[in-house]
Nucleic acid binder design. Structure first.
Lengths: 149, 149
DNA sequence: ATCAATCCCGACCTTTTTTGTCCTAATTTC
DNA sequence: GAAATTAGGACAAAAAAGGTCGGGATTGAT
C-alpha cells in the first residue's frame, strides 16, 4: 500500500522534537510518549533503532534519555526510514529470490529495480529540516500561486 | 514497509504482456495466470480493477479476455498503482483523521503531506514503456559508466 | 549500597492488511 | 444448450504491523 509505517511516523516526530529541544538536553522516551500519545514501549524500540543507526545518542540511567547525534540539518527522510525499516526495497525478490513464486518467469524485475534505484535517490532529497519550517511553506505556497497565475 | 504489493506486480506483468501481444488480440486471465504462475482468481480481480480504471478493456464469453484500452506508452506506474490500490497516500489521516491516535498532537502531518504530493508527481514520471526496453537499459548503463569515469 | 529512573531487548499477543480460495452469477461463442 | 470467459461477493489463511509484557543493565542520587 506504499504507506509510511507508524514506527516511521513516530521516529520522525521524535527526531523533530529533539531538534527543537534545548542544545544538549536529553529527551526521555516516556516524555515523548506522553507528549505525542505514543505507546511507550513501541516508541522505545523506534528510538533504539534510531540509536543503532547513529541518528540518536542515548544515555542510560536516571537523567538519561536521547538526543540527536548529528544536527537534523544533515538528515534526510530516507535516513530515518532505513534506520527503522531496514534498506528500502520496492520488491522482496532482491534479497530473497525464492520467496517469490514468479521469480523464474518475472518480466518486470529489472525495470522495477531500476525504479527502486531512482526512487531511492529521490528519497535522499527530502531533508528533514523541511519539517521545521512552517513559515517558509506558506511562502512556497504563495510562490506556487504566482507561477500558476 | 513501502513495498510494491503482489497485486501491483501482477498488474504490471499483465499490462506489459498485453503490450507485447498482437494488435487487437484478447488475452485471458487463465493464460496470464499460467504464464506467470499467478493464482488465477487473484489475477482476475487485479484485471477487473484495471478494467474499472479504464486501463484495460474486457470481453466476456468464449473468445473473450482483456486487452489494453490505450497504448502502454500513455501509462505511468502510478496509473496501475492507483487503479489497483486506490489513491496514493503516504499516511492515512488524510481521509480518516480519527483513525490516528496522534492526530491532535501530530507535528509532522503537513510536511509529510507535502512530501506525498511531491512523490506523487515524481511517480507520474515513471513511464511503463520503460518496462519494454531492455536494450536501451544496457546503453544507459554504459552512459553512466562514461560519466562516472 | 540501595533505589529509582532510564535504556535495551527478546518474547509474545492482537489487529490489520494482504494474499489466496471458493462459489455463484452473467455474458458470449459455437 | 454447453463451454469459455469475465464479474464479483464471501471467506480463509498467511503475513505484517502494531502493541504489550517482563527481565536485565546502567546510571545518578540519596
Amino acid at each position: 500500500m506504499l504507506r509510511l509505517s507508524k514506527r516511521v511516523e513516530y521516529g520522525l516526530m521524535a527526531v523533530l522534537h529533539m531538534d527543537q529541544a534545548d542544545e544538549g538536553a536529553w529527551t526521555t522516551a516516556a516524555e515523548l510518549a506522553a507528549t505525542y500519545q505514543i505507546p511507550a514501549e513501541l516508541l522505545g524500540k523506534v528510538l533504539q533503532a534510531l540509536g543503532r543507526a547513529g541518528i540518536l545518542k542515548s544515555a542510560h540511567g536516571a537523567k538519561g534519555g536521547y538526543q540527536l547525534a548529528r544536527p537534523m540539518d544533515e538528515l534526510v527522510l530516507c535516513d530515518v526510514l532505513e534506520a527503522i525499516e531496514g534498506p528500502f526495497r520496492l520488491v522482496r525478490c532482491q534479497e530473497e529470490p525464492h520467496s517469490c513464486d514468479q521469480y523464474e518467469v518475472c518480466s518486470i524485475r529489472e525495470p522495477v529495480l531500476d525504479i527502486q534505484q531512482q526512487l531511492l535517490e529521490y528519497l535522499g532529497g527530502f531533508e528533514l529540516k523541511a519539517f521545521r519550517l512552517k513559515k517558509r511553506k506558506i511562502n512556497k505556497r504563495q510562490e506556487n500561486l504566482c507561477t500558476t497565475n
